[in-house]
């Protein structure tokens, strides 16, 4: 069964007829050719498909495209402005926060969404009392970025990159 929807992806509007079974991830990759979100597990267990959906980081593989009608999607490809990398992306390059690059767009989107969450005062399970206002130290970055697996093992550099990006944005 099919349904007509409209997706706004990286600022561009796409009217689209989708199979109701199609996930947001497959709609982006297979229908729109937006392949910056990656498919690593297709079950919300790796984070490679992370995109910003209406401003929040989510796993594109677990959202049906039909349920995203009218939504705004930003992928790693749409983060930069005027041809410049987003500060998080530049920090990943500077600190080599990746190797094979397959989890990277998801890591980058996750980091951008996560920094917003911290700015909004959201707590984490990193150990600080939940009632306190969070302070983004390395332990917080590690916990908050744990939904993005990296098999190449770039975590140490990812943490450095996110810390650097936070300092730049400050």
């Amino acid at each position: 069964m099919e349904s007509d929807i409209i997706l706004r992806v990286n600022g561009r509007e796409w009217p689209l007829r989708v199979d109701t079974r199609t996930t947001l991830l497959d709609a982006l990759r297979e229908r729109l050719g937006v392949t910056s979100p990656k498919k690593g597990c297709d079950h919300g267990q790796c984070g490679a498909c992370t995109v910003l959906l209406d401003g929040r980081r989510i796993n594109g593989c677990l959202v049906l495209a039909v349920a995203c009608d009218g939504s705004e999607v930003v992928t790693a490809e749409g983060l930069g402005t005027d041809g410049e990398l987003h500060p998080v992306q530049q920090a990943f390059v500077d600190h080599d926060g990746f190797q094979c690059g397959y989890c990277t767009p998801g890591q980058v989107c996750s980091a951008v969404g996560m920094l917003e969450e911290v700015a909004a005062g959201w707590p984490s399970a990193a150990g600080r009392p939940v009632a306190d206002t969070p302070v983004l130290d390395d332990a917080e970055i590690r916990e908050r970025m744990s939904g993005n697996l990296c098999r190449c093992g770039a975590y140490a550099n990812i943490v450095t990159a996110v810390r650097a990006a936070k300092e730049v944005s400050r």
Binding site: G113, M114, E117, R144, G147, N148
Partner: peptide, 10 residues
């Protein structure tokens, strides 16, 4: 906060 990931919790 101890469940799943930031993306899933969203």
């Amino acid at each position: 906060l101890s469940g799943a990931s930031g993306q899933l919790r969203n």
